[in-house]
Amino acid sequence: MSKRIEVRDLNVYYGKFKAVEDVNLTIEPRSVTAFIGPSGCGKSTFLRTINRMHEVIPGAYVEGEVLVDGNNLYGKGVDPVLVRRQVGMVFQRPNPFPTMSIADNVLAGVKLNNRRIAKSDAEALVEKSLRGANLWNEVKDRLDRPGSSLSGGQQQRLCIARAIAVEPEVILMDEPCSALDPISTLAIEDLIEELKTDYTIVIVTHNMQQASRVSDKTAFFNIAGTGMPGKLIEYDETATIFSNPAVKATEDYVSGKFG
């Protein structure tokens, strides 16, 4: 189910603006990788190149290679739709579909693709995904209510349920817990721990404790100044990054001495 991700010489652009420069890293299957770094250093931008969401923005493009199990995502003739079916994503801001009920939001990956699903299978999938996202108990009595009737944190967990319902091989999470309370955050972290046995997970976070709790490896990104591209500074085992980093900037950042 899970896949190895290799990134080679990746430059990411918004039109003329180079947002991320020269990233090289390898993400092992069945692992959790955390991206940390100051705001605006290009974590989200880089994350979005791993499922070809970056090019959705007008004028945005990518140079270099991203290999998933050896297949270059940016090779000629690659269908981004197929890529995104294997590499799911949870966004920084919760974005449930306002026209759909809670249950339909979970089933969105199936229904929007016009795939048929038996009613009992659909119900089972909804329950499994919502339990997986630790939301089931809160919404089981109102599955037919609109998704936008939930609180911000509940909406985010609904989006996680929606992402795992399509059973991708890789899950990208862009600050999934930034809108959540500590209890839901712990639930998501436990969830990540469980998902790790099947999926490859990449998570962007501003929370150092979270990075050290959930991730096996950590990548530290930094930016030299405004208008400059973000760069991958250090990539290593999480324990090493937090206790004994090789680069001074990493040490300053994880110990809070930054800036």
């Binding site: 969401m53 739709v81 995104r84 974005n95 969105a108 693709n113 016009n114 399509v166």
Partner: peptide
Amino acid sequence: ELREAAYALGVPKWLTVVKV
């Protein structure tokens, strides 16, 4: 964000337009 949410689920663009 809604369009991106649909894309991220592997929904093609035309279905995203029609259904979202």
